[in-house]
Amino acid sequence: MPRVPEGPPRRQFLKQGLAIGLVVAAGQSLRPAQLLSASAGPDPEVPNEQVAKILKDLFGGRPIRRGQVLLDMPVVAEDGRVVPVIIEAPDLPMTADNYVKAVHLIVDHNPDPYLAAFDVTPAMGKLSLQFRIKMKRTTWVRAIAETSTGEVWADYARVNVSLNGCG
């Protein structure tokens, strides 16, 4: 790896990083309040052809509504090889006759966008999943939950990736 020259540009960059960090911290503390509103944050970009096909194969024509699901990811991921993901749905029921049955994670601009699926059951009590993923570049990430009654709920996060983690 080439050495980065020391000097003012680097210091400036670090300062900017700190500023971004503060904004990120502030943004995260706002999340619970955002949940109360109908839609949280900006809409994700229109799915590209590959992602649109994945969504169609998974959900057919069912509407994918934003809400209920909480996707928590860093705004800036310095190392695309290890990006933490938290998916929760504190208000969706997990009872025998109404529960989340699956959660899908789609990373729009990864080589293989349909990254993972989690089949879950009421035996888990609530929906709360944490894991770590690889990301190639800055993109939208989609966490989409499917309930046993056929509802489809989603949350989206735009993650800025500094170091390509996919090769």
């Binding site: 090889r81 290890v82 990006v83 990373v107 990864n110 293989d112 349909y114 990254l115 993972a116 699926a117 989690f118 089949d119 879950v120 059951t121 009421p122 035996a123 888990m124 009590g125 609530k126 709360s128 999943l129 944490q130 894991f131 770590r132 993923i133 690889k134 983690g165 996919c166």
Partner: peptide
């Protein structure tokens, strides 16, 4: 004795996969 979860992963999951979930 009962299957409570089933995860389908790809190589997009990070090295030495960690997963945290809940259980009643």
């Amino acid at each position: 004795g009962r299957q409570v979860a089933h995860f389908m992963w790809t190589s997009g999951i990070s090295r030495d996969p960690i997963v945290t979930f809940t259980l009643v």
